[in-house]
Simulated assay, not measured.
Amino acid sequence: MNAKLLSALTATAAATALFGASAPAQAFSFGTNGITFGQNQDVQFNFKESHGAFKSSLAIYEVNGFSLTNVANLFSETKSSDNGGEYDWKGTLGNTVVDSGPVVFKFLANKVYTLGLSSSYDGSDKGMVYSTSGLNLNVASTGNQQAVFGQSSLLWNALDKETTATFQAAGSFTDGMASLFNGTTLIGFDDRGNTNDTDFQDFTVSAQAVPEPMTMTGLALGL
C-alpha cells in the first residue's frame, strides 16, 4: 500500500477512535481547559434552561492571554425567570429567553476561545464567569471551575435542576469534545450566585459540531 495513503488512513483511524468519524483530526479542546480547533469549525448552540434569580447573558470571547474580546453574543435573558422563584427561578426558551433560535458560530483554526456568562441582579452587576477554569481567578489567583461540559443526556440527568445543591460530580464533567462530534454536548454554568453554591444549573446550553463530510475523506486521500 502507498506509504502516504497508509499514513493518512492511520491518522484517520486515530481521529475516529478519539472523536468519532465525523470529527476533524486536528480537533484540540472543547471544555474547561479552553476552546480551540486545529481547523475552522462551525458549532451550533441552543439555549436549554436557566435557574436562579440573576439575569444573565452568554457570549463567546477570543482569548489572548488574559485579554478577552467579545466575538459573538449567544443568548440573553430578558428577565430572571418565567414565574418568579418557582422551580428555583426556572427560565425557558420563549419566555425568559426570547427570539433566540439555534446560533451557529465559526471557531477559527488555532485561535483560543471561551464562553463568558455575565450576570446582574435588580440592576446591579454580579460579574462574569468563564467556561475556561483558568480565567476564573479567585483570591489565591488560581482558577475556579464555573462550568461543566459533558454528554448531553448524561450531564442533564446528573444535574439537580430545581435546588441549589452543590453538584458533587463537577470535576468529572470537564471535557465535551467527544460528544460535540457524536451527538450533543451540554454546558452548564454556575454564576457564583447564592454564595457560589456550585450547582452548575444557572445557565445551560447545548452545543453540536456542524459536520463537514469531506474532511475525513480528504485526509484519507492525502488531499
Rank of each mutant, 00 (worst) to 15 (best):
A27C: 06
S179E: 11
F28Y: 11
A207P: 08
S141D: 04
N2T: 14
S152F: 06
V104C: 05
A165P: 08
K55S: 10
Q44P: 06
T185L: 06
G34L: 02
L137E: 05
T36Q: 14
G127V: 04
I60L: 03
D122Q: 15
A147M: 09
K79C: 09
Y130Q: 11
T12P: 03
Q201V: 05
F167T: 03
T204L: 13
A25M: 08
V43T: 00
S76D: 13
D88Q: 00
D99Q: 09
N157K: 13
T164I: 15
T215Q: 14
A14P: 08
A53W: 08
G84T: 00
D99K: 07
L186V: 13
K106I: 02
A8P: 09
G34R: 00
T142R: 14
P24C: 12
S80G: 15
S80F: 01
T195R: 15
T174V: 08
Q26M: 12
A170V: 10
N136D: 07
S100I: 10
V63A: 03
A158R: 12
G85A: 12
A165Q: 01
A72Q: 14
Y121D: 03
G188W: 12
K106Y: 05
G222E: 01
A169W: 10
A15T: 01
T92I: 02
N70G: 07
N138Q: 08
S29F: 09
N73T: 15
S153I: 11
G65M: 00
G188N: 06
F54I: 07
Q145K: 01
L155Y: 07
N182L: 03
G222Y: 08
D82V: 03
L159W: 06
L159D: 07
E77P: 12
S124L: 14
G38C: 11
V97K: 08
K90S: 01
F54R: 12
A23Q: 03
N70Y: 00
S80Q: 12
V103G: 07
A59S: 14
N2H: 13
A25P: 06
K126S: 05
D122F: 06
